[in-house]
Every structure is written in structure tokens, then in C-alpha cells.
Amino acid sequence: MKKTLALLLALAMVAALFAPSAFADGKKTFVMGIDPEYPPFSYLGDDGNYTGFDVEVCKAVCDYLGWDFKVFGVNWDEKLVQLDSFECDCVWSGMTILDSMKEAGYVISEPYYDNTQVLVVKKADGFTKSADLKGKIVAVQLGTSGETLLNGDLAELAESFDSVLTCDSFLKCFTELQGGAVDAVFVDMPVAASYVAKHDDLAIIDENLGAEQYGIAFRAGDAELCKAVDEAVQALVENGTYAEIAAKPAYADIVNNLLFLNAETEAAA
């Protein structure tokens, strides 16, 4: 019995050693869980390091709080499982806040981004509204809010399509579209905007199909951690760091949808 206890204790110590939130030399390490393929919020930069709007803000938060900052690339369909298994301390990567997350007990930060789902089509096809896609094939990225919407609130729209093709990355969704295998891609507005900006043959259907908000997910029981991050973000908004990051050209597509900045402008006005 004693032996078992000792073994368990030893195991716990070893586990603590490897746990991402362990305190090393008194400094807390904060591990940010991201989808490494979700520009401009989080992606692999040209220099080979993870970057993106969320990544930069998180880094600034850690600097502000004096934490060590680490990035962990999650598998997007299993992000919450990975969060629960302590592979990261939060999921912060253009993540749509879902009611089901709150119901499952996850602690969610203040929403910071207003997202809109749109349909991207080929200009040549001449589709101008979602109704034009009746009987057509629409691609969506697995694990994105777009997929959730098509299975839920927008099920009726989804049923008017011939079928919905789920791909495991948005790049594949767009390749399917450009290669002619699907007729439209249902995707987050900022992703659509940045991709369409680089590809002349594509267009966004001007129709807001689902207003959603982005937030940061923490494990159930990490309410204090969430509060600390929320307050730090507010501090960064107040001292201008937040706006400074948002002003970078790389984030031009999303700057208008950032809730804190717009609230500030509104307040200023």
C-alpha cells in the first residue's frame, strides 16, 4: 500500500515536471494552443516561427504578466481534448465561442472578435447569393464554426446544397473550389478576405450567414487564469499595445472586426 502510494507520488512529481503549466524558477509558463494553419490569427510565419494576431497578443499578455510564453499547435478537431489533457493552457486561435463549450464547462474569455461566415465562389460561375448554390457542392473545413453552423442553425441552407464536403484544412477547401470539384467554400470572413485578396478568380458572396464571436477557451476550473488574461488584454488595449499589433498590415483584413478596438473608437467618439 505504502509502496503504491510512493509510486503514485513519484509519478505525480514526474508528471508535474512535464506539465506545461509547471512553475519553473518561480516563473509561470503559459502554453497557448493554436491552429497553426489559421492566418492571420495564428500561422507559421516566413521566419519559421509561429505568428499571427492571436499569437502576438498572447505574447504581449505574457510579457505584461511576466509569464514564460509557449505555443502549442493543436489538432483543431481535437483542440478541447488536448486542452483537457494539459497539452496547452488555453485554445486561442480564432476560435468561435459555442454554447456547447460553455455547457461542457469550459471557461471562455470575453469575446474579442466578431466573425462572419461567408461563401466564397468562383467569379466565373456568377453566383451572387446563397440561394444560387441550390443543388451545388459546398466545401467546409472540419472543426470550424462553419461546419457547426451547417449542421445546426444553417441546416436548411445546407440541405439545399447537393452535398457538403468536409476538408481538413481551408487550403484544401479552396483548392477543391479552384480545381472545380466544389462550387463554393463556406468559411470565416477574415480567412475568405485574405485568400480572395490573393486570388483574382474568386469572389465573396456578400451575405452574412452567421454572426459569431471569437474567444479564448480555458479548462473548467481555470476561471482565475481566464480573468487574469482578460484583465491583461484590457490593460494592453488601454496602453495602446493592442492597437499597435492590430495596425500591422498583416492584420488589415481583421482589424475592423476586433471588438475591443471598435468599442474604444465608439467610446472615443
Binding site: A104, A139, L142, K172
Partner: peptide, 23 residues
């Protein structure tokens, strides 16, 4: 086959897992 969006059994499993937040 999931990697090229072929909707075979495991892909459907992943979709369900995702929408139901279930293992």
C-alpha cells in the same frame, strides 16, 4: 482517404466527434 476529403467511415466519425464534442 480523409486527407483528400473522401467521406469514408472515419471521416464521418471525425465529423460526428466534432459536432457532438464526443470521443
Amino acid at each position: 482517404a480523409f486527407t483528400v476529403s473522401y467521406q469514408e467511415m472515419f471521416t464521418i466519425g471525425k465529423q460526428i466527434a466534432n459536432s457532438q464534442t464526443s470521443f
